[in-house]
């Protein structure tokens, strides 16, 4: 059956807007990355790949922000995936109580990053924060910390806030994945005398692989996009110890007015994300099974 040509009219308004405000800026990021534009003056020079060379060889803060981003990502991916999986298994049955708990755990997801940033700034506050107050009350004064002020742990403190923020969302994805596993597989396994661990290893885990792929991939992308949370909590400080790539791009562009260099970092950022996403899909897809 033929579709009339007028169908193309449906695409046009969306495509125009998308091209102007998304495709054009994305492409021009490549263009500006070869210039020394400061973002203000009308003139700029093409400086070839100088920005890329500088990023790769002569910018310790950029290297540090990649490192921080990787630390942040690893912490979040490991703990968020682990927690959401464990609690999905615990709360898999659709009882009233479990449904309530799932809704509760999900709740932080609907808050704004700025709100979450304030909540955790308060919890981490060295003098009146929840953590230090509790540690003091149970006599573990030695563990009291300046959670966001200590350069060695600040990035992990932020990563923990991110885990608090989004574990509930990932939990729901795992619950949906668990519900999709045919019940009779468990019955057969039980009849054959499989232990709980064997059942998890041979039935639940392999059949949960598609959900796990989604959770890990989404969590990874989310941790690179954590600009709002990091910016509203620490602005990348102290001393760049919580600088991630996105906050560094902001700093280079809007504090140091080096738009050309910021564009080059953006392009590198894009390539890194594409690479990580691709690798993850390859690794996680390879353990897909069907019964």
């Amino acid at each position: 059956m033929k579709t009339s040509k007028s169908i193309y009219l449906f695409v046009i308004p969306g495509l125009i807007l998308y091209s102007i405000f998304f495709l054009y800026p994305t492409i021009s990021a490549f263009f500006y990355s070869f210039t020394n534009w400061d973002g203000i003056s009308a003139e700029f020079q093409f400086i070839g790949v100088d920005n890329y060379i500088r990023a790769a060889t002569n910018d310790s803060i950029f290297a540090q922000s990649i490192g921080n981003n990787l630390k942040f990502m690893l912490f979040v991916v490991i703990f968020q995936t682990l927690f959401s999986l464990i609690f999905a298994i615990f709360l898999v049955k659709n009882t009233k109580f479990n449904v309530f708990l799932r809704a509760l755990f999900f709740f932080p997801t609907v808050l704004s990053s700025v709100s979450v940033a304030f909540i955790w700034s308060f919890i981490y506050d060295p003098s009146m924060g929840l953590f230090n107050t509790l540690l003091g009350q149970i006599g573990l004064d030695g563990f009291r910390q300046n959670w966001l002020g200590n350069q060695n742990i600040a990035i992990y403190s932020l990563a923990f806030a991110q885990v608090w923020f989004h574990t509930g969302q990932m939990l729901i994805i795992f619950v949906a994945g668990l519900h999709a596993i045919p019940k009779d597989l468990y019955e057969v396994a039980k009849i054959e005398g499989a232990t709980k661990f064997q059942i998890f290893k041979k039935v639940t885990w392999p059949l949960l692989a598609p959900s796990a792929t989604i959770v890990v991939a989404y969590t990874t992308i989310q941790s690179f996009k954590a600009f709002d949370l990091v910016f509203a909590t620490t602005r990348g400080g102290p001393n760049h110890s919580t600088e991630i790539i996105a906050t560094y791009i902001y700093e280079v562009a809007f504090r140091n007015y080096n738009f050309g260099y910021a564009s080059a970092i953006s392009v590198i950022f894009m390539v890194v994300i594409a690479l990580i996403t691709y690798l993850q899909f390859k690794v996680l897809r390879s353990n897909k099974v069907s019964y």
Binding site: A29, G39, A253, S266, M270
Partner: peptide, 21 residues
């Protein structure tokens, strides 16, 4: 493909050229 490509590119990549625009 064109529209879904947008899901892969994090918004922060565009912040500099988008600001100019």
């Amino acid at each position: 493909v064109l529209f879904t490509l947008g899901m892969m590119v994090p918004a922060q990549v565009n912040m500099v050229p988008l600001y100019n625009l």
